[in-house]
Amino acid sequence: MPARTRKPLSRIRSWGPPLLLVAPTIVIIAVFVYGLIAVNTQVSMTDRHSLQPATRFVGLENYFALLTEDRFLHSLWNLLIFTIVFIAGTMLFGFLWAWLLEKGVTAEGVFRSIYLFPMAVSFVASGVVWRWLLNSAEGDRASGLNRLFESMGLGFLQNPWWSDPTWGMAAIALPAVWQLAGYVMALFLAGFRGVPIELREAARMDGASEWKLYRHVIFPQLGPVALSALVIVSHMSLKVFDLIMSITKAIYQTEVPATYMWVVLTGNDYAKAATIATIMLLLAAVFIVPYLNYTNRKEREGR
């Protein structure tokens, strides 16, 4: 190959320009993603709990303190409940909608656009209406969904929604499901469309019933899409902030690490805020790093 015999100078001549073209981005990302993550980690290992500068390095002390703090564990527990309902809801409805729309539906585009539209709205805007829908008043004073249940003869479904101390976080996940199920639907639809037509034809030739065709031929092909959807939805769940701030404000009842971090940082406890943030980053990395590796590997195999 001629490239092997090139002199170093010509190698620089061919690598130099592309490197220069992406240099601004590389520098920006290096500083504002990796640099700031490094500073954040460093701050989290100091005793900077006020506006005063840090006086000393405390190692992992802040981490130990946080991980044994009831309030932080409560926020993690809330996040877990939220995540379970959020993932189950978006995956269930997203999959169901995609399946229903998968083939031969008149006005498919209209249905798809309607299911997906909440994605275009901000959490702050949807929070306004969901705060109304999830009003905790019951009986005569009920409004929102409780009133709707009552008037439909489903009064037993009335509940205090997010004011419930145990299951309140599950109620907060409802708007999130409403907002993002359409996104999961779009992913699954792309997955359905990606199943080679020959596979379907072959199964039909073999006399497989419609259900068997799905069960044994099409669903198994959706594994990678389901994985993508799961990773994306989980990491969105970890970041949930806007929705909670908009529906309940930053209160203890519905606190998750993201809103707790806000409360702590506005109280100028820099070290603690940085500690919460690092834990959030680690939680996200657990999903994201293997996923990026996986897609990278798949891409290389695909070439």
């Binding site: 990302i29 701050v43 993201a258 940085a274 959030m280 790093v289």
Partner: peptide
């Protein structure tokens, strides 16, 4: 990777 991080991780700095 920068698009997947929770932005809290860079917010304090």
């Amino acid at each position: 990777f920068g698009m997947f991080i929770p932005y809290q991780a860079i917010m304090t700095p």
